[in-house]
Design a protein around this nucleic acid. Structure first.
Lengths: 208, 208
DNA sequence: CGTACTTTTGAATCGCATCAAATCTGGTGG
DNA sequence: CCACCAGATTTGATGCGATTCAAAAGTACG
């Protein structure tokens, strides 16, 4: 796939002005690479074409916290106007990412109103996603969090996991043991149907 | 205080273009009023001058979840480009709010680059604030959440509560009993100093 | 085939939620 | 000024559910 085709294949990039495209660079990245480290200056914006990037931070116990996880489109958007990163930007799964110089990015936002509209909509979506996540973390029980996740992130009461269950547990703020146990419990109760990576709510629960 | 002075006194409003100001209306609101209800069409944006607005939602257990709490400046920013609200916008404390028609608001964003820059910075700050909140909710213990809150929301290792402790407990995702108990425990351990509404970290903890 | 990681199950523990009740506080009206 | 009330604050006792530690079985990959 050539660059033009790659660019066009990304919905989030359809609106990237030609001028900014020419300033962008394709990077092939390997799992484990760190694109930006906490404290370093913000010089580039990144958009994921394939693979997975994560915005992570470590709390004082050393536990890794995933703040954002992206398999397609922009990541760490809120750093656009910051001086320095507050988190690490790491490659969780090798792939291809687009790299934009921040100066060109800001210029494009200022000059192209369609691009700008898309960007602001993107930010707004991120805000809503984060609010949903906060809402979920406020639920105290494992079953509630699982069901809330499926309801808010899934389609039609079902999700297809694109990660391991262990990683999903971290995203839910649970230990993996708790997640495994709760999944089997909910399954035996008939609340959930689990089929490999696909997990769906039984109708009764979805309608309640 | 006249309207011009009120407008100027709000940092977030310093950049509001003149044209948009003339389209704005001042509202005096009382505690308990609901400015926007879940599902209703988005027709106005609100900015708090005095008092407190909250963006709230109820989970299936009926528990009220506070998604945003604002005592100064814009609230529910991400709804600017949405068709309908997904939450209720309620007055928690009576005061004065500015009401902007969304159409005029969008037009101003499109035409005034300084206003736009301020708005995008505002959105980015909200994203960072929400990320910090998610991070905090990932911490499992009450002491960790309290300390994290003070570190991320306070200045120089101290906060001055502008709400009751009971309300603070809800914001931390704890019961008020757990908060009260943990505060006295941390105080007796010398980790925290509590003085009325002012709560500060002891130095040792701040540096660790 | 071996290694690293995920998935699964078991058992014990701990911390927070929950329920209950007493005290304190600020504000209201008589 | 006082009585009163609603809500916040505080303390106590109990139980549940998630964490934690442990270990085994399954799985992907070189």
């Amino acid at each position: 796939m050539d660059r033009q085709a790659l660019t066009a294949s990304q919905p989030a990039l359809a609106e990237v002005p030609q001028q900014l495209r020419t300033a962008a660079r394709f990077l092939e990245v390997d799992a484990g690479e760190v694109l930006r480290r906490n404290g370093s200056r913000v010089q580039n914006m990144y958009s994921v074409i394939s693979g997975e990037l994560r915005l992570v931070r470590r709390d004082r116990n050393g536990t890794e916290i995933i703040l954002q996880r992206t398999r397609s489109g922009f990541i760490a958007e809120s750093s656009l106007n910051s001086k320095a990163y507050h988190c690490d930007l790491v490659v969780a799964e090798g792939g291809v990412v687009l790299q934009f110089p921040v100066l060109a990015f800001r210029a494009a936002l200022d000059q192209d109103s369609a691009f700008r509209a898309g960007w602001m909509e993107h930010l707004a979506r991120e805000v809503r996603r984060l609010r949903a996540q906060c809402e979920r973390m406020n639920l105290r029980s494992a079953p509630d969090r699982i069901i809330h996740f499926i309801e808010s992130e899934g389609n039609d009461g079902a999700i297809v996991l694109n990660q391991t269950r262990k990683a999903w547990a971290a995203e839910l703020g649970l230990t993996h043991e708790a997640l495994y146990r709760t999944l089997t419990k909910l399954q035996s109760e008939g609340v959930l149907a689990v089929d490999g990576k696909r997990i769906s709510l039984a109708r009764a629960a979805a309608e309640e």
